[in-house]
Design a protein around this nucleic acid. Sequence first.
DNA 1: CTGTTAGCGCCTTCAT
DNA 2: ATGAAGGCGCTAACAG
Lengths: 336, 336
Amino acid sequence: MKAYSNTVTMKEIAQKAGVSQATVSRVLNNHPSVSPAKRQRVMEWVRKLNFEPNYSAKTLAANSSQLIGVVLPDMQNPYFTEILYHIERIATISGYSILVCNSNGDMQKEKALIRQLKARQVDGLLIGLANTRSEVLESLKRDHIKTVVITQDYEGIDCVAISHTEGGTLAAAYLLEGDVSDFAFFGQDSDDKFVGFRDHLLEQGVSPDHIHTIGNHEDWYFSTMKRGYHTLRQFIQTNELHGRLGVFTVSDMYAVAMLQACRELGLKVPEEVSIVGFDNIFLCEAVDPQLTSIAQPVEDIARLALDILFRRIEEKGEPQGHQHIILPPQIIRRGT
Amino acid sequence: MKAYSNTVTMKEIAQKAGVSQATVSRVLNNHPSVSPAKRQRVMEWVRKLNFEPNYSAKTLAANSSQLIGVVLPDMQNPYFTEILYHIERIATISGYSILVCNSNGDMQKEKALIRQLKARQVDGLLIGLANTRSEVLESLKRDHIKTVVITQDYEGIDCVAISHTEGGTLAAAYLLEGDVSDFAFFGQDSDDKFVGFRDHLLEQGVSPDHIHTIGNHEDWYFSTMKRGYHTLRQFIQTNELHGRLGVFTVSDMYAVAMLQACRELGLKVPEEVSIVGFDNIFLCEAVDPQLTSIAQPVEDIARLALDILFRRIEEKGEPQGHQHIILPPQIIRRGT
DNA sequence: CTGTTAGCGCCTTCAT
DNA sequence: ATGAAGGCGCTAACAG
């Protein structure tokens, strides 16, 4: 059931060049111990026949695939596609290809994907975990898959992420500067962003009564911007506000939704409502007024995560200790 | 040099279950001719040992990888990541994984990626070609790689795309409705969008002097929004305009750049400048005023392209004829 | 229904 | 420096 295709193999090259297959292999893998003459002869035929080594065979024989699995929790959020852009770029430069999967924030799917990826013999995994404290981590360790988690900090596994708590603190401080009297966090209250946000406000003497949570759903994560409008309207209608409202959202996608909601509700931004997003995706600069946001250094995250992963891959045996790189977030002040 | 990992093989399962390896293979591939008893026994051990078949070996032996290569020309443009989202989703459902690459619009890179992907034994390729009439098509055919091109229509290869010419016509018609006197296309004048745009304007009696081209660079494609501002400013400063200006851009990314440029230049949209984008990415709804755009049915494109590709993969031998699916674009009227 | 056998294309000792 | 040979894990005839 062989597909029709001009599959040139090392064997053929070997015959044409009048050497053994082993020599061809050596040439292709830049082994030093090959005479220049033969090397030349082999390379000629490689070019002539347009030979390309079969990765499956290579993977099988060498037990290394030069493949990185990438699992993202939300491919509809530009934040993750921005990070994906960098991952692809860096991986390609380093001679790896990437298998991309979307877990859609579903933990079952996440686990299935990881097994799948393992079966595909990936050398390593880059994963943006969906839930905090995902049980996925267990299977990851059980299966001895070299993995770096991006986006979040977890015990017992290599991670590269920003401090979400600090991000929350930055947002709180920003809103406080702007003389905001009521504070709302759009997202889950279990989120570290909220912890940092709330704690800082509390520390600065804000009454707990003035700190609210909106859009606190299990599936808050996903980019249904429409929901922003309804959520905000409902919030405003049911809460007694004391002055300027400050909204901090888990993601820029929701911040933009808030912006639209304000427009529709006739609320002036930033005069009546101040908004701080998270991730600092390109969208922030495209809207009017431009969105203030907590920036994640996506390029650094991608680079550092891959650096660690590549090192793990080269390293033999079980990994020694874990790396936890927690980058500082940065607030980008714009018009909201 | 075997990496430390609990690699369970079919051989082990066979031993434990007291059957031959072939039987294990049959069970795993749902071959009908296996006694229920043995099947049961095998599956038990598969579960118990957490067995996962090795795809490299499978690929090598069966000459089928269940892998689709995806080559995108610009992973920074949301249009392509939106399409990627659907490709990933549909491919996964169908039991395929995707290898994602960014050609960055570079034809040399494009060719290299395709070779790479072929070496990786992909069953098929989905590719958004960078240049019109890319010589890439030649190597594609020479190498007998099953390929579907998205985004553009080419001779001699399966394609799924919208009619860019028609898109240009729609844009022209829209601007004409709005009593625009000067027309500018932001992009390359070799683009079919421009052809449709210009021809329709000409047909409707617009003087060629009133049809302009801006941002006509070889690398216009790439999302450097900054450039929009300078380009527009320069255009406005150097051209005598007769009334309302209508701008049609090759991509929404540039349309948004135009929007920003207008803001900075104090030009009112849509009163003084009317803008029509292309692709209808989510961004169009996020900006204010919301952007009028020519919509591409990304989900349909992804689905149809994969449908064709899967059919080609199942089909033996050389492909018979080519499918050219040209979908109609649609104008989404919004505030510009 | 089931086991045996022969590869798939490449890497890697082991001799020479 | 080079070739022969065994094996990576799985599939797919071929016998029975």
